[in-house]
Simulated assay, not measured.
Amino acid sequence: MSARMGKVIVNQTISADGYSAGLNQTEERPFGEDGGDGWGDRLHAWMFEAGSENKAEVDQINAASAVIMGRNMFGPVRGSWSRPWNGWWGDDPPFHAPVFVLTNHAREPQPMEGGTTYHFVTDGIESALTQARAAAGDGDISIHGGATTINQYLAAGLVDELRLHIVPITLGAGTRLFEGVPPLKLEQLTSRAASTVVHVTYRVLP
């Protein structure tokens, strides 16, 4: 009997017109311009406001046994990677699990407080997934983004489940989910409307 293999799950907040980040991403505005004061105020407010209303979805995101993210999701390159910084998630990142960062810049693993260790993967999305599977065991793997990274995994057919958190704003431009991804067959598993976001989960069919 084969061991259970965890699911590869995408968790992504998007605007009603499909953008995961606006234009002009900076260190001060990692999610670009969305009409808020910074840090993706309008796009990601559901995670921090009315917390009890969306607690189940936030808990789902934080339950992953391993995480994959792109370099921009970790943080922009600041100066030389011989004197690296530790991203914009603080000294105690919310992941509390191994995080595999896709990058062109090799560096040693970076342990953080709270059980998070960043591993920097320079040989592509399949290598990151292989390493994440080894770290997660039979637990689930969450691809946190950004959309460019998610689109690569979707295009390669490596995603089992797509959890979208759709916010009722439009951005009109920026980084868009599904850009360059071939048509997908999706089965809707759940949907729930909260006051500031709609949570929808799809299974990605072969």
Rank of each mutant, 00 (worst) to 15 (best):
V181S: 04
G32N: 05
L102F: 13
R163K: 14
H119T: 00
L23S: 07
I143H: 07
T201A: 13
T117G: 12
R163M: 13
R203F: 11
R83N: 06
P84K: 09
W85S: 07
Y118T: 00
P183F: 01
Y118L: 00
S191P: 11
T196K: 12
V99R: 03
G172D: 05
A134C: 12
A64S: 07
T190H: 12
I14H: 09
D92F: 09
G174L: 03
D37I: 00
E108A: 14
L129S: 03
A147H: 04
Q12M: 15
R4P: 15
V101A: 04
L177G: 06
G145Y: 07
E49C: 10
T116W: 08
Q110M: 10
S82A: 13
V67G: 08
P98M: 02
M47D: 12
L102D: 02
D59N: 10
G174T: 01
G90F: 07
L154Q: 06
N24I: 01
I61F: 15
I166Y: 15
N11T: 07
G145F: 08
R176C: 05
S2T: 06
N72W: 05
I169R: 06
A97G: 15
V197D: 13
T170Q: 06
I169C: 13
G22M: 02
D92A: 11
I143L: 07
N54W: 11
F100H: 06
I14R: 10
K7Y: 11
N11K: 05
F48G: 07
V198M: 14
L158E: 11
L102A: 10
Y153T: 05
M1I: 00
M73K: 09
T196V: 05
Q110H: 08
I166W: 15
E108N: 10
S65E: 09
D92E: 15
R107V: 00
G35L: 03
H119Y: 12
D91Y: 10
D37Q: 13
A132D: 01
R83W: 08
T190F: 11
G114C: 06
L129C: 04
L177W: 07
G87A: 04
G75D: 02
G139C: 06
Y19M: 01
I166K: 12
E113I: 00
W88M: 05
V10A: 07
A136W: 14
L184T: 03
P109N: 02
P168I: 00
G137P: 14
E187K: 11
M47C: 12
L177I: 03
V67I: 03
L102G: 11
V181M: 01
W85F: 09
G174C: 03
A106D: 08
E33R: 14
V121D: 02
Q25L: 05
T201P: 13
R29N: 13
A135S: 13
R29M: 07
E49S: 12
N54E: 01
E28C: 02
G32C: 02
W88Q: 09
G114P: 15
S80H: 11
A155P: 15
E126F: 10
D123M: 06
F74K: 01
N86S: 14
V198S: 15
L189Q: 08
A3M: 08
F31G: 10
L171K: 14
I9D: 09
R4V: 06
L177D: 00
A56G: 09
R42C: 12
D59P: 05
I125S: 15
G32T: 02
V198W: 13
Y118E: 00
P84M: 06
